[in-house]
């Protein structure tokens, strides 16, 4: 009587070519220049970062391009102690939702140059970019965010973005 088969390996590999689309293409060209790009909805006038081309609430194209600030506010965060495949960051690291000045939507970014114990909601931060010759059409152009020394933002200024 042989051992029952409990597992078989069936390796698979699939390759994909992605289409960023018009809107994400514009975002990426911004990142290539070291600038965050926002897109304004013609209907509700909200400015979306990393937009995929439509206003999520109105379902209309966000055609108007807005250059956003390099600074923003930490709206909320978590401290990560779990290693993930493909992550080369030292543990623990801080994941934060960052609301760029002039934008109406936060996005998740890495915070560095502050001890994990000092991270807080309302912290003012700025983006640190890779050196100019390494800038590319990718989010990897943003190395991380760090405190920019400004006083913390009041809760009222970002409470709608939680």
């Amino acid at each position: 009587m042989s051992e029952p088969v409990t597992m078989m390996a069936a390796p698979m590999r699939l390759d994909y070519v992605f289409t960023p689309g018009v809107a994400q293409g514009k975002n990426m060209h911004g990142l290539e220049r070291g600038v965050f790009i926002g897109q304004r909805c013609p209907k509700c006038k909200k400015v979306y970062t990393l937009s995929r081309g439509s206003c999520p609430t109105d379902g209309v194209p966000t055609d108007e391009i807005v250059e956003l600030s390099n600074t923003g506010t930490v709206t909320t965060y978590c401290v990560v102690n779990v290693p993930f495949a493909g992550q080369s960051i030292e543990l623990p690291y801080i994941c934060a939702q960052i609301l760029l000045d002039g934008a109406n939507l936060s996005f998740m970014g890495l915070i560095q140059e502050i001890p994990a114990g000092e991270i807080r909601m309302g912290l003012r931060v700025e983006a640190v970019w890779v050196p100019p010759d390494e800038l590319g059409p990718t989010m990897a152009s943003v190395k991380y965010f760090r405190p920019n020394g400004e006083p913390d933002a009041a809760f009222e200024t970002y409470k709608e973005y939680l």
Partner: peptide, 13 residues
């Protein structure tokens, strides 16, 4: 996935 922020830490993150 290209074009999105690489800082993923699972559902808990």
């Amino acid at each position: 996935q290209p074009f999105s922020s690489p800082l993923l830490a699972g559902a808990g993150g």
